[in-house]
Amino acid sequence: MEYVNRSVTNLRASFEDLTPQKIIRLVVIVGAYALLRPYLMKLGGKFQMRGHEAQEEPEDTAAPRAKLTPNDIRGQAGIPEDSDDGEEEEEGAEGPAIATDWGKKARRRQRHVLKELLDAEERRLAELQEDEEDKDIEEFLEKE
């Protein structure tokens, strides 16, 4: 109970002693902290990343190792080519198969979806062109 009484007394005394100068000083300090905190977090993150990279480096620097990024992995799956020859690609022909290899049906579905998207875009562009032509013709028609 004694701790509660002390806390209430100290909190009340803190607010009673506030002068305009102390209020302005408090606002400046809190505002500066709010503005500088994101930059300080970025700086701390850079230092932390350097530390992690230094720990991961092998002690034998004679053989540098290549770094693998997520973008390197993402680039392995592409849009299938337009081939309906009926032959399945053999796994051993080009190297080991990866998890993103496309099957025959998946390639056909993807080609079909892409063709539909292209046709829809062509129809939309054709409609826009027809609308513009109609507006040009309306300009020359006589209005009674």
Rank of each mutant, 00 (worst) to 15 (best):
K42M: 11
D131C: 14
I79G: 03
Q76K: 03
K46W: 15
M41L: 13
V28L: 13
E81I: 10
T9P: 02
G45H: 06
E16M: 01
E133C: 04
K115E: 14
K143E: 11
A34D: 11
D72C: 04
R108H: 12
R108M: 03
Y39A: 14
V30S: 10
A106L: 07
E59N: 05
L114W: 04
T9I: 04
G103V: 04
I98V: 12
L141I: 06
K105M: 01
R65P: 10
V113P: 02
E2T: 12
G44F: 02
E56V: 07
V8L: 13
A99N: 12
M41D: 15
A13G: 01
L68S: 10
A66L: 08
D72K: 01
M1I: 08
L35R: 03
I137L: 14
T19V: 00
E122P: 11
D136T: 10
A99W: 13
A32R: 12
F47Q: 07
P58R: 00
R107S: 10
R123P: 01
S7L: 13
S7Q: 06
V30W: 00
R123Q: 12
I24H: 09
P58K: 04
L40D: 02
I29H: 09
I98G: 13
L125T: 08
E139A: 14
F140R: 15
A97G: 05
G95T: 03
A32Q: 10
G92K: 12
E142H: 14
H112V: 08
I24Q: 05
D72T: 03
L26R: 13
V8G: 02
V30L: 09
L43D: 07
Q21H: 01
G45Q: 11
A93Y: 03
E139F: 15
R124I: 11
Q55G: 10
E122G: 13
D82K: 13
E56K: 06
E81V: 08
R37I: 06
A77T: 07
E132K: 15
R50W: 05
E144M: 08
E91A: 13
Y39W: 14
E16K: 00
P58I: 06
R65N: 08
E142I: 14
A97P: 01
K46T: 13
D119W: 07
G45F: 05
T19S: 03
N71T: 15
V4L: 06
L68W: 11
M49Y: 12
G103H: 06
K22Y: 00
R111P: 00
R6G: 05
T100D: 08
E90F: 01
K143N: 05
L125K: 13
P70L: 02
L18A: 01
Y3K: 12
K42L: 14
K143D: 03
R107W: 04
R107K: 09
E89D: 12
I79F: 11
D101Y: 10
I79S: 10
I98Y: 07
V28R: 15
I73L: 13
V8R: 05
E81P: 10
E116D: 08
G75K: 06
G86E: 08
P70S: 01
D17Q: 00
L125P: 04
N10Q: 02
G75Q: 15
R111Q: 12
L68N: 07
E2C: 07
E88Y: 05
Q48M: 15
K115Q: 11
F140D: 00
E88V: 06
A93L: 08
G75I: 09
D72N: 06
L43E: 11
P58N: 09
D101N: 14
D131M: 15
E127R: 15
A120Y: 01
S83R: 15
